[in-house]
Design a protein around this nucleic acid. Structure first.
Length: 267
DNA sequence: AACGAAACCTGCGCGC
DNA sequence: TGCGCGCAGGTTTCGT
């Protein structure tokens, strides 16, 4: 479910609530999600800081880094020590008596523990490209030049640029007037620059809005997002383009539903 | 090397 | 009311 802005919101919310606390016990209710060896390593560690790279949340612990990816539907909640709910798969017991709970309807989320010196040097984080905020537009242009994939697919490729998911990819393409099926190596320098710069703007706005886009996004602590971001194309099939009035269309690219305006976005 | 499909899971909305 | 299908904001793996 979450893309960079949502993950940033979750990370910031958690950071304000749990930094300084220690993990006293970890209960895993769905074994495939986290091995005993992994959960054992977390016990006794203090949460020193929290960071994010792309869509990964990084818990900086005393001796280790704990890396969490929410995939489609992962969420964190902080609760008192009360009965667990159906989709709560991992419960971290903290030193103030509260519990941090990992909730994931589809059980897609992943967890990794890394030695601090290797965190960014080994997968999964080592494989990530730069985020749009750090990406130089011309550097991005040259990366696109090497790819014959549709630009939509390239934007979703986390090794090319990190943090963009299906919703923001559609929005960024619309804002840059580029058709989702355009071959990546056919994107011009001007367009590559638009994709990065307008991408930054869209992601920043989304972060300011509390990381909300579609549906009832609920961040940590059960706080519902504010829905301040108006989506220009995503999920707007057959509705009118806000710019030209043409009908928004849909095409499947790389297996992902892609919404676009055939008039505003150049093929 | 490159691409799409399938896999990992569950729930929801839709048409019949 | 129930059933089957398609779909979901992600990523990896498998097969052609």
């Amino acid at each position: 479910m979450p893309e960079l802005p949502e993950v940033e919101t979750v990370k910031e919310t958690l950071k304000n609530k749990i930094v300084g606390l220690s993990i006293q016990k970890v209960d895993v209710y769905y074994d495939k999600m986290m091995s005993k060896a992994t959960s054992d390593r977390l016990v006794g560690q203090q949460i020193i800081d929290m960071n994010r790279l792309g869509k990964y949340i990084i818990f900086n612990l005393t001796d280790l880094d704990f890396i969490s990816h929410l995939r489609m539907e992962g969420r964190y909640f902080i609760k008192a020590d009360e009965p667990i709910l159906k989709h709560e798969h991992i419960v971290f017991h903290l030193s103030n008596g509260q519990t941090l709970r990992y909730h994931d309807t589809r059980k897609f989320g992943t967890f990794d523990v890394r030695e601090k010196h290797e965190t960014y040097l080994v997968p999964p984080l080592s494989k990530l490209g730069l985020e749009p905020f750090q990406m130089d537009p011309m550097d991005f242009y040259h990366r696109l030049k090497k790819s014959k994939k549709p630009i939509k697919t390239a934007l979703l490729d986390q090794t090319i640029v990190a943090g963009i998911g299906n919703i923001y990819a559609d929005e960024i393409l619309f804002a840059s007037h580029v058709h989702p099926l355009r071959r990546a190596d056919k994107v011009t320098k001007k367009e590559a620059t638009w994709l990065i710069e307008r991408g930054r703007g869209i992601l920043e706005s989304a972060i300011e809005a509390g990381g909300t886009t579609i549906r009832t996004y609920v961040s940590s602590l059960g706080v519902t997002g504010r829905f301040q971001l108006t989506l220009m194309v995503h999920q707007r099939l057959d509705e009118q383009c806000y710019i030209c009035g043409d009908q928004i269309r849909k095409v499947v690219v790389g297996g992902r539903s892609s919404f676009y305006c055939d008039t505003c976005q150049k093929r």
